[in-house]
């Protein structure tokens, strides 16, 4: 922390020797890492390349020309995934937070709300997402109710929201319950009401704490948004499927996969960064 009076400091001979030693060690580590990486890559490449079916697999899955050709269509599909993801994420955060707050409410008057929230999270955490997508995507339009939208993308999105909001509700609830009771005591002793305590003291701390697991759920949502393809919505996966149907070359699937990975990597890196910055800090006690 202090920076005064050290400007004329020079490392002693002993310290210079340590610095040189650490530098030699670091160079040696880099060299070992490089050599071992090359060896592994060569072994994998030779291993796969020497399998009898490799030429066939290469032409079917890794045809660069075919991939390049399919890219615009698949990318257009991915744009739908991104839009679905963004709209769903907003709804999931709102509903998840509402459910989490419902579950932590005290008092007999809120009993029905607590039961509802508990039942909701139990059901939608337990149901496989694909099943919920089928039920909503094919079931609801089949009811032929007037006034309800019948686009598959809306019901697919609704299924994502239902399932993910139950996960996110549990993440928020864990965050709310992790705030130490003494924080509530301090807030109440100042005269803040239950609601004010929740809003100004508990939730801000809870949300900060659960940001890393929350972002993790959104990485997962990004790729699960591809599941709505089963409803016939032309997203990245469905677009790739249509492309492969032209000539039975599966490279478009690989293209879709690479695009999904490219989409999630920035978010996973952000998650890591947030976790590093406050996950270990915020718990009290400072950096380890």
């Amino acid at each position: 922390m202090s920076s005064s009076g050290v400007s004329d400091w020079r490392p002693s001979a002993l310290q210079q020797e340590r610095i040189a030693y650490r530098r030699r060690r670091a160079q040696r580590s880099t060299l070992i890492a490089a050599v071992s990486s090359i060896v592994v890559l060569v072994v994998v490449a030779v291993g796969i390349g020497s399998t009898p079916g490799w030429p066939r697999v290469r032409d079917t899955f890794f045809d660069v020309h075919r991939g390049w050709q399919a890219l615009p269509t698949v990318a257009q599909g991915l744009w739908l995934n991104i839009r679905v993801m963004l709209v769903c994420a907003v709804l999931i955060v709102i509903i998840g937070m509402a459910l989490a707050i419902m579950r932590t409410l005290r008092g007999p008057i809120f009993f029905p709300l607590r039961v509802f929230a508990a039942a909701y999270t139990d059901v939608f955490r337990g149901l496989p997402l694909l099943l919920v997508i089928f039920l909503l995507g094919f079931g609801v339009p089949a009811l032929q109710l007037r006034g309800l939208p019948n686009q598959a993308v809306i019901w697919g999105g609704a299924a994502l929201v239902l399932t993910y909001s139950s996960y996110v509700a549990e993440v928020f609830r864990a965050g709310i319950e992790s705030v130490h009771p003494s924080q509530r005591a301090a807030a109440r002793s100042l005269g803040l009401s239950y609601r004010q305590t929740l809003r100004f003291v508990v939730l801000p701390q809870a949300v900060r704490r659960v940001l890393p697991p929350l972002l993790n759920d959104f990485v997962s949502l990004q790729k699960d948004s591809g599941l709505i393809a089963v409803l016939g919505v032309i997203d990245a996966i469905r677009a790739a499927q249509l492309e492969t149907a032209i000539d039975f070359n599966f490279t478009p699937y690989v293209v879709a996969g690479l695009l999904f990975v490219a989409l999630t990597i920035p978010l996973t890196r952000l998650t890591d960064y947030v976790a590093r910055r406050q996950g270990w800090y915020g718990g009290g006690g400072g950096p380890v």
Partner: peptide, 20 residues
């Protein structure tokens, strides 16, 4: 209770400041 508490100041052993 909220009104009564707001007229009483409490200081705790472990400070209980709001860290955020």
């Amino acid at each position: 209770a909220d009104k009564i508490r707001s007229g009483i100041g409490v200081v705790f052993q472990s400070y209980n400041l709001f860290p955020h």
